[in-house]
């Protein structure tokens, strides 16, 4: 074994043990998240809030699922997918179409997820590309999907059929359920062989391929599962709103999840959740500070630039690092 290989090997092992099952703070974050989700589930029961106000939470659940989806490919597998909006809107269209054909909600959602996963599979050839070229390639994908979808689903807007519209309480619990499934589905997956291989690839691609991990296979799995989740998020989103094909052109659905994952901590369990919560808190606060105006968008863009420049490693990781420093 050459000197270099030895070095790679030892860093690989170090990373491995960092994520290992015996790591001390391993069970703390999932427990906190589980309690948070339970409280979220109790909220409509104890708050006596006007059920319609529960509609406000729809985007937040959607953002959590999207952030989880992006963290899976972009965080764990280091695949910088800039075309998440393509999976998302495609999922919304497929769900709307299936439901208008008479399918019920859950089969339609699963079908949409499968279509999203298939879209992930079609991107396999791009996995060979250098990471920045992969990013550019995926950024263009939604713009390509737009004309395809316009031909396949020949109508201008999509929504769920009137008979299938959920009431706000159902919508709230649907979002909570889907968010919980994606959070803990990914959590459990990351404990499995797939997850350990993915983490190894994200940390040391060269080392892990030389250790016999089939990097292409695991990257494909990450991309397909990420596509599945993003499409399901789209299927959830279309339960509350009707959308058209120009949504494919909206970069924000691709980039806001990246923003969330980065501020929360890229490639970590709590990252996408903390990021989505932080994102929601910031946008809610800005929204309510300037009622009736759109200054919040302006301020939000400044927040994004500020975080990118001052805390490029994220808000939550910087706070954790700060605490560790104080604690010695």
């Amino acid at each position: 074994m050459t000197e270099d290989n030895k070095q790679n090997h030892s860093t690989y092992l170090k990373q491995f043990s960092k994520f290992g099952l015996l790591s001390t703070n391993h069970a703390i974050s999932p427990t906190i998240v589980l309690i948070g989700l339970l409280l979220t589930g109790l909220y409509p029961l104890v708050s006596h809030a006007n059920p319609t106000s529960l509609l406000e939470y729809t985007p937040y659940f959607m953002w959590i699922i999207l952030a989880e989806s992006w963290n899976l490919s972009g965080g764990y597998a280091s695949l910088l997918n800039l075309g998440l909006v393509g999976f998302f809107v495609l999922g919304a269209f497929v769900t709307g179409f299936e439901m208008s054909m008479g399918f019920t909600l859950f089969p339609a959602l699963i079908f949409a997820g499968v279509v999203g996963a298939i879209l992930g599979f079609t991107l396999i050839p791009t996995l060979r590309l250098r990471s920045d070229y992969f990013a550019i390639g995926t950024l263009v994908v939604p713009f390509m999907l737009k004309p395809v979808v316009e031909v396949v689903f020949p109508r201008s807007t999509f929504s769920t059929p009137p008979s299938e519209i959920l009431n706000p309480v159902q919508l709230y619990y649907l979002g909570l359920t889907l968010a919980t499934i994606s959070i803990f589905g990914i959590y459990l997956m990351m404990q499995s062989r797939i997850g350990i291989a993915l983490r190894a690839i994200g940390d040391q691609e060269l080392a892990s391929s030389s250790l016999g991990i089939n990097t292409m296979l695991y990257k494909t799995i990450a991309l397909a599962l990420s596509g599945f989740l993003a499409a399901v998020a789209g299927g959830y989103f279309i339960q509350s709103i009707s959308i058209n094909s120009t949504y494919f052109e909206n970069l924000q659905y691709s980039l806001f999840p990246i923003f969330m994952v980065i501020i929360g901590g890229i490639g970590t369990f709590e990252g996408p959740i903390a990021g989505a919560v932080l994102f929601s808190v910031i946008s809610y606060a800005l929204n309510n500070s300037f009622p009736g105006t759109s200054y919040d968008i302006l301020l939000f863009s400044i927040v994004i630039m500020f975080v990118a420049v001052v805390l490029p490693k994220g808000i939550v990781p910087s706070i954790i690092k700060g605490f560790r420093k104080i604690g010695g």
């Binding site: 910088l80 800039l82 990471s131 920045d132 990013a135 970069l251 924000q252 980039l255 990246i258 923003f259 980065i262 890229i266 968008i297 302006l298 939000f300 863009s301 400044i302 927040v303 994004i304 630039m305 975080v307 990118a308 420049v309 490029p312």
Partner: peptide, 21 residues
């Protein structure tokens, strides 16, 4: 200037914020 050597994501986010702005 401050983030040009810190990878692909940070400048991407910064310029995304700029485009929204």
């Amino acid at each position: 200037r401050r983030i040009e050597n810190s990878g692909f994501e940070a400048p991407l986010l910064a310029t995304f914020g700029l485009s929204v702005f």
